[in-house]
């Protein structure tokens, strides 16, 4: 009954790992699985973001809605998000979204009293929960190469003398599918691993200048020349963008079949960049958990078959086979 025999168990290898960046290999699986993982990472892993803003006073140059929108886009540290409730199905506050299980409150009160323009930044937001705070960009400055002294948080608005901004904001759990501000991913991409075969015999019929010319035809640096043997070697197979330029060049030179390039259809190289809301490695783990939850939801509800007439036209269509 159980069909484990045809099941495959993917392999994982980490290439590079930083808090907000991750590169890993996923082998022995299918594009549908890799794509499901990518889609979940972008649109269905929950984070926390400001969702409701009550402006108490705003004499800045930006209007209330504009500021509320900018606040929503500020990434907040969201390690808590997986365990939090969506405010729409929180029974502690009847979906009000104002209780500790489903929301975090922020306050901001800034007034400019100098002749110098004052920047209101994400650092000015006061959180009610120390675990949910605006992502500290400066903390990562060492790894990303920013000058730490330049970092002043994320600017919300600038104030001149006499202007003031006072507000209360409610942050809630959400997913990227509802609004991109909840997406924990800056970019998630995967590529097939290329398999490059150089026809050595045919390659040796080329002169040195022809070889150089051919290597130059690739827009990315995939091939190189061995300085000692003058042989063409593959420098970086992953730099290949499946652009077919080298193949076209070989044909133009009258040497078709000089190189053969295949995409290994069961090996994927993932690149994950996080907004800082959750660590990149945690993002992958959360994505798998979300995918598992989705599968779990489908299974039990299968028992609750509904009558054909509820489908209307679709039911009739299905009865027809």
């Amino acid at each position: 009954m159980d069909g484990v025999s045809y099941q495959r168990f993917p392999k994982v290898k980490i290439r590079e790992m930083k808090d907000d960046y991750l590169k890993f290999e996923l082998r022995e699986t299918d594009a549908s699985i890799a794509n499901a993982l990518r889609r979940v990472m972008i649109a269905e892993v929950p984070t926390i973001a400001i969702d409701l803003v009550e402006i108490e006073g705003n004499s800045s140059v930006l209007n209330d809605e504009f500021i509320a929108h900018r606040l929503g886009l500020i990434p907040l540290t969201s390690e808590r998000a997986m365990g939090m409730r969506f405010s729409r199905d929180c029974d502690a506050c009847d979906g009000d979204g104002q209780c500790e299980y489903c929301s975090v409150e922020f306050h901001l009160h800034v007034r400019c009293d100098t002749d110098q323009t004052l920047d209101v930044t994400s650092y000015d937001l006061r959180s009610s929960d120390p675990s949910v705070v605006p992502v500290d960009v400066a903390q990562h400055s060492e790894s990303t190469g920013y000058d730490a002294s330049e970092q002043r948080g994320i600017i919300i608005v600038k104030l001149r003398r006499g202007q003031e901004l006072r507000l209360r904001a409610i942050a809630r759990k959400g997913i990227g599918k509802d609004h991109a501000k909840w997406s924990p991913a800056a970019t998630v991409t995967f590529m097939y691993e290329p398999e490059i075969h150089i026809n050595e015999d045919l390659m040796e019929t080329l002169t040195l200048d022809e070889k150089r010319d051919w290597i130059e035809s690739s827009p990315t640096k995939v091939f190189g020349l061995d300085p000692n043997t003058h042989q063409v070697v593959v420098v970086d197979p992953e730099a290949y963008t499946y652009d077919d330029e080298v193949i076209k060049k070989a044909e133009a030179m009258g040497k078709p079949g000089l190189v053969e390039i295949y995409a290994k259809e069961d090996s994927f190289i993932f690149t994950v960049e996080s907004t800082g809301a959750i660590k990149a490695s945690q993002l992958v783990v959360n994505a798998i958990e979300v995918l598992k939850q989705k599968l779990d939801v489908v299974r039990p509800s299968e028992e609750t078959e509904e009558a054909d007439d509820q489908f209307g036209e679709l039911g009739a269509h299905m009865r027809g086979g």
Binding site: V4, Q7, I288
Partner: peptide
């Protein structure tokens, strides 16, 4: 099967 696969990727990861 998918569930088992997800669990496997999770532990391998």
């Amino acid at each position: 099967d998918l569930m088992i696969m997800c669990q496997h990727v999770r532990s391998t990861f």
